Computed example of a mutant assay.
Amino acid sequence: MTSRTLYLFGSAAPPVFDVARVMEDAQARSWDVCLGLTPSAARWLDNSLDGLTALSGHPVRSEYKLPGEPDVWPKADVILVAPATFNTINEWALGLSSKFVVGVAAESIGRGIPLVTMPCVNAAYVQHPAFATSVETLAGAGVTVLYGKGGFVPNEPGEKRPFPWAVALDAVETIVSSGP
């Protein structure tokens, strides 16, 4: 049984379709993976949710639990928010926590849980001034933001290229091994 728990939180961007492989890669690195998805990402993966639950051994979550319900996940050692869409990055930086994954990530800043994020946005979105401010806000709050050189480099709208998942998982390993 693994003793390290990774919360993997995904937004509705094409790399979320690779999440089963990413979970397997993280498990091969001795992580117990709990998968959280934005409501749109959960809808995109609706036909795979049972299989993803079986793969993880934990329920896939996209909604907050009801008051009084027990928490069904173990405590996180680290949280990886990837792919993180334009909307997710901006909501998180602003503290708009109506979505489960954004709310947990926002609260985790104050709880001292290490956070890594890799945006998945195209070059048109990053021209909006809110995006740079949001990236700066998250980095200033202690979130490891894998954006630009060495992380995710925005693609042109409609351009398809591989998402650098290995970079994200390597960053998770680095942040946890460096400790507090």
Rank of each mutant, 00 (worst) to 15 (best):
V60S: 00
W44K: 11
A26E: 01
A54Q: 15
A41S: 10
Q27T: 14
A20Q: 05
S30W: 01
D32Y: 02
S40D: 14
W31V: 08
L37Q: 09
L35W: 10
A26R: 00
S56T: 10
L55M: 10
R29W: 02
S48Q: 15
H58K: 04
P59M: 12
N47H: 12
A41M: 01
L45K: 07
M23A: 12
R21Q: 14
D50L: 05
R43S: 15
A28R: 13
G51M: 06
L55Q: 13
E24T: 15
Q27L: 07
Q27M: 14
L55P: 06
V60T: 05
L49N: 02
T38V: 03
A20M: 07
H58G: 04
C34Q: 12
G57L: 00
L45C: 05
R29K: 07
V22H: 03
A20S: 13
G51P: 00
L52V: 09
S40W: 15
L37H: 06
E24A: 15
V19F: 09
W44N: 11
N47F: 12
R21I: 04
A20R: 05
S30E: 09
M23I: 15
A42W: 07
D46N: 06
L45P: 02
V33P: 02
R29M: 03
P59E: 13
S62R: 04
P59Y: 13
R43E: 15
S62N: 12
H58R: 11
E63I: 11
D46Q: 07
L45H: 00
S56F: 03
L52P: 08
M23D: 02
L37N: 09
G51Q: 10
L45M: 00
V60W: 03
D50N: 08
W44E: 14
L45E: 03
R29D: 11
L52N: 05
A26D: 04
A28F: 04
V60K: 00
E63Q: 15
V33G: 05
L55C: 02
W31Q: 03
V19M: 10
R21L: 11
D25Y: 04
G36E: 07
S30Q: 00
E24G: 08
D46E: 14
L52M: 08
F17A: 14
D18V: 04
V33T: 04
L49G: 02
E24S: 12
R43L: 14
W31C: 04
L49D: 02
V19I: 15
D32S: 13
V19Y: 09
S48D: 14
S56M: 06
V22E: 09
L37M: 11
T38N: 03
N47K: 12
L45V: 05
D50V: 10
W44F: 14
S30P: 05
